[in-house]
């Protein structure tokens, strides 16, 4: 793929004897949604954290828009004017700050904007995500779906080019799951960011995915459009998918 926006080559990471990532190659197109699937504990979050520079990879290269990201010296969250945002599994909102203060935090602490500019941007963002009424409330007083939206607002307020979603739908009921996926798709269009998702919600997540990557045994074993998944029926991937679907049917 020539126009890859985020390009990963030979990424390796091990913990002790456990080779979690053993040479990951991945190309993500600009303004696309790419979903990483795979068994629990296979290293999907580790991959996201390596991309976000929360973990230092042992080897490999990450290129963003043609620029190599120097992992050793890079300040977290920044790379040559291209910024990442990370949406955590449990939102990682600060309990002692209100929703609006949580959203304002990255601007307040790490940007040169004035207070009034920040207030303006935060209010606009809250309005975008239909959170105007909840700005003054604390995370503990918000519902699960609202917390997700606050976390998304915080991730988007810095106008990132890449947003990494680490299991954005864990712990939500099916209806909410669907609305979170819808939200990601909508705002991807509105804000034009590139999204990289880790999700277990198969097949719902395929609705919004442009590409799917299957991570197994430390490498990407399948990469392609969601429609192509069914064609690849006899592989180990189909076993994984069938189990995932079966589990879904059984619980439904």
């Amino acid at each position: 793929m020539e126009d890859a926006f985020l390009k990963i080559r030979g990424l390796k990471k091990h913990f002790g004897d456990n080779r979690v990532l053993d040479g990951i190659d991945l190309d993500v197109a600009r303004a696309s949604v790419t979903t990483i699937i795979g068994k629990s504990g296979i290293g999907k979050s580790v991959l996201l954290k390596c991309i976000a520079n929360l973990l230092a990879p042992d080897a490999g290269q990450i290129e963003l828009d043609g620029q190599a990201i120097a992992h050793s010296r890079r300040k977290a969250g920044e790379a040559d004017g291209v910024s990442f945002s990370y949406m955590f599994q449990n939102n990682a909102l600060f309990d002692s700050l209100t929703a609006a203060e949580n959203v304002a935090l990255p601007l307040l602490e790490a940007s040169g904007l004035s207070r009034s500019e920040i207030r303006e941007q935060v209010n606009a963002m809250l309005k975008h995500l239909e959170l105007e009424q909840s700005g003054g409330r604390y995370p503990g007083e918000l519902s699960g779906g609202m917390k997700k939206r606050v976390a998304l607002a915080r991730a988007l307020i810095t106008k990132p080019q890449v947003v990494l979603f680490d299991e954005p739908t864990t712990g939500l009921d099916p209806e909410r799951k669907f609305s979170v996926f819808e939200m990601i798709a909508d705002y991807r269009e509105k804000f034009g960011f590139t999204a990289l998702l880790v999700s277990h919600d198969i097949p719902e997540v395929f609705e919004i995915s442009d590409r799917v990557a299957w991570l197994d045994e430390g490498v990407i074993k399948f990469f392609g459009r969601p429609e192509e998944l069914d064609a690849d029926a006899e592989s180990a991937l189909s076993g994984f998918l069938n189990k995932a679907n079966y589990g879904r049917k059984a619980s439904a």
Binding site: L54, G77, E78, N90, A92, L105, P106, T158
Partner: peptide, 18 residues
């Protein structure tokens, strides 16, 4: 545990300093 410290880091805020 709640990844709030990681979150600070992704927001370019030094978690120890903060």
């Amino acid at each position: 545990n709640d990844e709030q410290i990681d979150a600070l880091q992704t927001m370019s805020i030094d978690p120890k300093g903060y």
